[in-house]
Design a protein around this nucleic acid. Structure first.
Lengths: 193, 193
DNA sequence: CCTACCGATCGGTAGG
DNA sequence: CCTACCGATCGGTAGG
């Protein structure tokens, strides 16, 4: 219809391809030339869509958060029991961290430090919303007596355990995502009552 | 006495300074010129001591592992109860991950992927020894009925929770290392019997 | 370990 | 989005 759609498509393509490359090789291990080539552009053309390489990085992270938030919000606001909410949140989180084709959040976990302070603040807004959902569910667990710990530290340790899996999980080897989620929940909360 | 000592001192100095810079700025965010300048050398001189920048990175990681192994081994081989061993291991690990002046293991956690495959294999030998100590203690916890989970996944989740703290812990804010260690142990194992 | 340097890479830009 | 390019940086090396 108009050119905006085409331009947006190209931009979205750059973000998607950049996510994959950043995840595989890291932010510093990927050049803007790599990204351009992977979408069939010339080396300077990504800068028509983004002001800097770091802006691409921020866009990757924001897209991952925006894509992941609705599912997490639905879980947090559902009528499930605290334990069920937690189990669902763990499973959903494992999916966006380890699932096939999910490159965005791993990039966030790997290369958060490469963002400039300004961009970090911008992305942090979305990150805070995601963290708050976890905080709410962890608070429910504590209120229900299912977890004993300082609430803020508990959340950080729990999310750390899950997030860190991006460094050791290999698809096809050992447990699958459902099984890892089960192991994690039962380890943190004890066996099902 | 002889020149070997002086040369070794310079080399050790490079490793120590590189550890600090790599931790603060990341491997790719640090140039060999930064490292040279920080020890008072000219830009090319680090390559008299190391074949490549990656060799410096490997040396940093190996030094961290060699320094951390004895304490962990002493704990694993001690006569403590499984719960006490685990608590001691968590506390010792938090120290080398978060403690002031401990830059080596954070570099390992941040920049493991920047090692070439060959160097990664070399460092992995030491890493395996460290991981095995954790595996042994986790197995003892399982045997004692203090943890319910698949043993390998349990270890990875536990170590992930601790290791990931390198991304959120800020000295002087919130809990100190002793308190975080206590929170972690009680969250994973439940309240003390 | 220094001097002096290279060769390549890379993010980014002007102008169309 | 392409062409053509710059300016700086950086790991690494030869020779002493």
């Amino acid at each position: 219809m108009n050119q905006t759609v085409a331009v947006d498509n190209r931009r979205a393509e750059l973000v998607r391809v950049a996510a994959r490359l950043f995840r595989e090789r890291g932010f510093d291990g990927t050049t803007t030339r790599d990204i351009a080539e992977a979408v069939g552009m010339r080396s300077g053309s990504p800068f028509y869509h983004f002001k800097s390489k770091q802006e691409i990085l921020a866009a990757v992270m924001e897209e991952g958060l925006v894509a992941g938030l609705p599912a997490a919000e639905a879980i947090a606001e559902s009528a499930l029991t605290p334990r069920q909410k937690f189990a669902a949140l763990v499973r959903a989180h494992l999916e966006i961290v380890l699932g096939e084709g999910h490159d965005f959040i791993p990039v966030l976990l790997y290369d958060w430090r490469r963002l400039t302070p300004e961009l970090r603040s911008r992305v942090q807004v979305l990150r805070d919303r995601y963290d708050q959902l976890w905080q709410d569910v962890v608070s429910e667990l504590l209120a229900a007596g299912l977890l004993r710990s300082d609430s803020a530290v508990a959340r950080l340790l729990l999310m750390g355990a899950i997030n860190y899996s991006v460094l050791w999980y290999k698809p096809g080897l050992g447990l699958n995502l459902d099984q890892i989620a089960e192991e994690a929940v039962s380890m943190f909360l004890g066996p099902q009552p």
